[in-house]
């Protein structure tokens, strides 16, 4: 811990993350108290007061033949369409804050699920070996070999049209839980495989062999001997998985199969922005920059974790 605190880059990254998370958590406050805008309702024929003048949020073109309609650009007035409007006439800055909430929420919760499931499966496979190992390894193989985006896209196409109705589990179409589960399941092998490898090599070590020889229960060995040894790796993996899951979420939303309207995430805002790339490029660029900033900070933090807890952990950067 002390070593982590001495790592200036990691502390700076942590600061950035805290700042972004706080700003995103304050989204409702900004939208309702400062901007007085509902960032989820279309405002196509609306107007705003700007420098004492009434201006349309969406403006019909006046030059040339006059085809097309362009949303208002950045006003640089903090309380009023700071970064301009999107094609629905919604406040881009407010949506950026709300979108950040979804992106961070999806990134973090899918990372928790992914790392937890991967840890249980990977440790069980490595420790028990035999049939357990065979089955877990083959499941890892299958998920691994299913091209990542294909698996995610295929699952999304079905789940997003139907929702999940499996036995007692009911998740509605359009719920954030769907992208969370999809992203979590797709990356389980990426975490599970290295953990299995670590447990395999641990099992060869004398102190574990001694514990097995002394007749200690499996549960005892797992808890007292194995877990403390894989925990650092899990901790190191976590921020990197959050970063990577955020990137995946944005890619899925870009392909139109992640977060569904009227919810927003940085990925869906980039997607909205693509339709305005030639007239209002900022709508698509800003959420991308936010992703880069957040994912970058998480990666730096992950590096800091590694240096502090598990300098030998072999990670693929951002996988």
């Amino acid at each position: 811990m002390r070593q982590l605190r001495r790592n200036r880059a990691a502390m700076l990254a942590l600061g950035v993350i805290v700042l972004i998370v706080t700003a995103c958590l304050l989204a409702p406050f900004y939208a309702h108290v400062i901007a007085h805008e509902n960032p989820f309702a279309s405002n196509i024929t609306g107007t705003i007061r700007l420098n004492g003048k009434t201006v349309n949020v969406l403006q019909a073109n006046t030059q040339g033949l006059g085809y097309g309609v362009t949303p208002i650009g950045p006003t640089w007035h903090f309380s009023n369409y700071f970064l301009g409007a999107d094609d629905q006439g919604r406040d881009v800055f407010a949506r950026l804050l709300y979108g950040g909430r979804s992106s961070l929420y999806i990134g973090a919760s899918s990372a928790v699920i992914c790392v937890a499931v991967a840890a249980i499966a990977g440790v069980a496979a490595g420790y028990f070996g035999g049939a357990v190992d065979w089955i877990v390894s083959r499941i890892f193989d299958i998920i691994w070999a299913f091209p990542v985006y294909l698996l995610a896209i295929s699952l999304s196409v079905i789940l997003e049209t139907n929702g999940i109705n499996f036995l007692f589990i009911h998740i509605e179409q359009g719920s954030l839980t769907i992208p969370i589960l999809i992203i979590a399941s797709v990356f389980i092998p990426y975490v599970g495989r290295p953990l299995r490898g670590i447990v395999l090599s641990l099992k060869e070590r004398e102190f574990i062999q001694a514990a097995i020889g002394s007749g200690a229960s499996d549960f005892h060995i797992l808890r007292k001997e194995i877990l403390p040894n894989v925990a650092p790796t899990i901790i190191v993996f976590f921020p990197l998985m959050v970063a990577f899951n955020m990137l995946t979420e944005s890619a899925l939303s870009f392909l139109g199969i992640g977060v569904q309207a009227p919810q927003a995430s940085w990925g869906t805002i980039i997607n909205d922005g693509l339709g305005l790339l030639y007239t209002r490029p900022l709508v698509g660029i800003m959420p991308g920059l936010m992703i880069v900033l957040t994912a970058g900070a998480l990666n730096v933090l992950g590096d800091g974790f590694r240096d502090a807890f598990d300098p030998k952990a072999k990670l693929r950067g951002s996988i």
Partner: peptide, 19 residues
């Protein structure tokens, strides 16, 4: 045509548009 190109088209390429 993508809607964000209409402005550019109706100013720079007006003679090439037919409605």
């Amino acid at each position: 045509l993508p809607s964000d190109r209409l402005q550019q088209l109706s100013t720079k390429y007006a003679s090439q548009l037919h409605v």
